[in-house]
Design a protein around this nucleic acid. Structure first.
Length: 505
RNA sequence: GGCCCCUUCGUCUAGUCUGGUCUAGGACACCUGGUUUUCAUCCAGGCAACACGGGUUCGAAUCCCGUAGGGGUCACCA
């Protein structure tokens, strides 16, 4: 293998068997940041030695998510797409793993066992010690180390196992630092021994603490989705959703599988919100990559000061292995939401509008169309009221459809109290609004400013609150002038009429 | 169960290596008050932690031992 021009080479090596999840995202972030910090290279490769579970669709999806996060790997060639990324199945076809396995066999470091090949550990090798950049020196006595399979049997197509393939790849691709989940801590003695037997230098290993699921115990993962869906289905007696084979559904309910497509179908059919686990989930929920990354970065690493809000560029300059935490961290959606809102607030409206538009374009195209030229106004109205890019769609639901019911408390407080004071204000307002021209924010504002004084109110709320109830069915909406402008004259007047009729005594 | 790892406010954490400046700091959440046409924003204030038990020491969140709890791992999955 040629000498690498880089002092530091990191890599992200997922198996393409599902979605890119939040734990992956953090590993990528750290591996990327560490490489940047040392002017190194950040590589991607796919570990698809488990042919049955691996898929191209998954590989492509992971690449797309990586792109969204902003971490396209340095070994990516756009013209070749996902096909340009190294994958172990291809390297196997080229014979590289068998070559190494043969070398080990010839050297007496491995032996055939039925139709597999095992690597000798135990007394043959002695105690294995390695130093982890996060967890320190870890010593494993020979007695705890058993011979392990490095080449699977015929049924597996004589594929190398993950243990052999990672070591060979990390060596061949010149990886100097291996950042991965702490689940691999107990595999590392095997990898260290393999390196030693092959006479290859060992990379620096840095194992990352796990991200635990909020409220519960255990790693945050796809099971959280299936668990929630299953529980709701069981509690409310939901049946098999469309498009899912009854047998698979039954197996799912019996906890025999945890397939997320079943969980998703269940959620979709019954209006259940599944927890965000995968990067795509956070994207759909309207989190900004910058905020997600900022939050994730802190879940396991910190700069050692009271500094919490920083960019990936800051990380690229300051990230270090020795400030990675050892203890597992629990994911906190509320804090993520706060970071996201903070990021939104720090954008200018000019920056926010296109970002919100892109989100609506992808996830709420119908609403985007309905908004038409009001989109700018809509963005302005919800810019500082939203924690996510998806919030405007729900918080602003009244913009897209008239209220079907009126909140009782809001009605009492703002319409019927004091002998229908609010309703009387509303009726008077209707006259004034009918004459407003042009129907825009500033004219509406002037009109309403004048109106509350004419109608003897103590302040703007005198007219704003009855209007809010009539227009939204609740006491909450953006600035009242913007609310009216968003709705337009016809819709505003018709909703007022409907409300007056509803509560006419 | 064996082996490995971990343990500061509800959560993320600073502080631990180089004991005293820690009556333990910040952030999110929560509570209170203020600003505001509602909500949100913003501002001010508040609640809240060194897992437990022994040592060592003039002095321990910081060092040592033990206990408890949590996580991981024991595959022809990665």
């Amino acid at each position: 293998m040629p000498e690498s021009p880089f002092q530091v080479v990191t890599r992200f090596a997922p198996s393409p068997t599902g979605e890119l999840h939040i734990g992956h995202a953090r590993t990528v972030l750290y591996a990327w940041a560490f490489a940047r910090r040392h002017d190194g290279m950040f590589q991607l490769r796919f570990e698809d030695t488990d042919l049955a579970r691996s898929s191209d669709a998954s590989a492509q999806g992971m690449l797309d998510d990586l792109d969204w996060l902003g971490f396209l790997p340095d070994n990516y060639e756009p013209s070749r797409g996902v096909g340009g990324i190294p994958r172990q199945s291809e390297r196997h076809q080229q014979g590289r793993y068998n070559e190494v396995i043969q070398q080990l066999l010839d050297a007496g470091e491995a032996y055939e066992d039925d139709d597999t090949v095992r690597f000798k550990m135990g007394d043959h090798r002695g105690d294995v010690t390695f130093t982890d950049a996060v967890y320190g020196t870890i010593e494993t006595p020979a007695a705890d180390l058993e011979d392990f399979i490095i080449r699977k049997g015929q049924a597996g197509g004589f594929m190398p196992t993950f243990h052999l393939a990672v070591v060979v790849d990390d060596h061949d691709f010149g990886c100097t630092h291996v950042l991965r989940g702490q689940g691999h801590l107990s595999n590392t003695p095997k990898h260290a021994a393999l390196c030693d037997a092959l006479g290859w230098p060992r990379p620096v290993w840095a194992h990352l603490p796990d991200i635990l699921t909020p409220g519960g115990k255990g790693k945050m993962g796809k099971r959280d989705k299936s668990k929630l869906a299953r529980q709701h289905a069981s509690d409310q007696g939901w049946g098999c959703p469309d498009g899912i084979a009854p047998a698979r559904f039954a197996a799912f309910m019996a906890k025999e599988n945890h397939d997320t497509d079943i969980a998703a179908a269940l959620a979709q059919a019954n209006g259940l919100a599944l927890p965000e686990i995968d990067v795509a989930d956070f994207r759909r929920s309207g989190y900004l990559p910058a905020a997600l990354l900022n939050y994730i970065a802190l879940l396991g690493w910190n700069p050692g000061q009271d500094l919490e809000h920083f960019s990936v560029d800051y990380l690229a300059e300051h990230f270090s292995l020795d400030r990675i935490n050892k203890a597992n961290g629990t994911f906190d959606r509320a804090k993520l939401a706060s970071f996201n809102q903070d990021a939104i607030l720090r954008m200018s409206l000019d920056d926010f509008e296109p970002v919100l538009r892109a989100h609506f374009q992808q996830f709420h195209p119908g609403k985007l169309e309905q908004l038409g030229e009001h989109f700018r106004l809509f963005s302005d109205a919800y810019w500082e009221r939203s924690k996510t890019l998806d919030d405007p769609a729900t918080l602003g639901a009244f913009v897209f459809s008239a209220p079907t019911e009126y909140n009782a408390k809001a009605v009492k407080k703002n319409l019927t109290k004091n002998e229908n004071q609010g309703l009387r204000v509303l009726a008077a307002l209707r006259e004034k609004l009918e004459a407003v021209n042009p129907w825009d924010v500033s004219t509406l504002r002037e009109t309403l400013e004048q109106a509350w004084q004419d109608l003897g109110g103590p302040h703007m709320g005198h007219v704003a609150q009855p209007l809010r109830v009539a227009l939204t069915g609740t006491a909450v909406s953006p600035e009242i002038d913007a609310t009216l402008a968003l709705l337009g004259r016809d819709e505003t007047l018709s909703r007022i009429d409907r409300c007056l009729a509803e509560f006419a005594s």
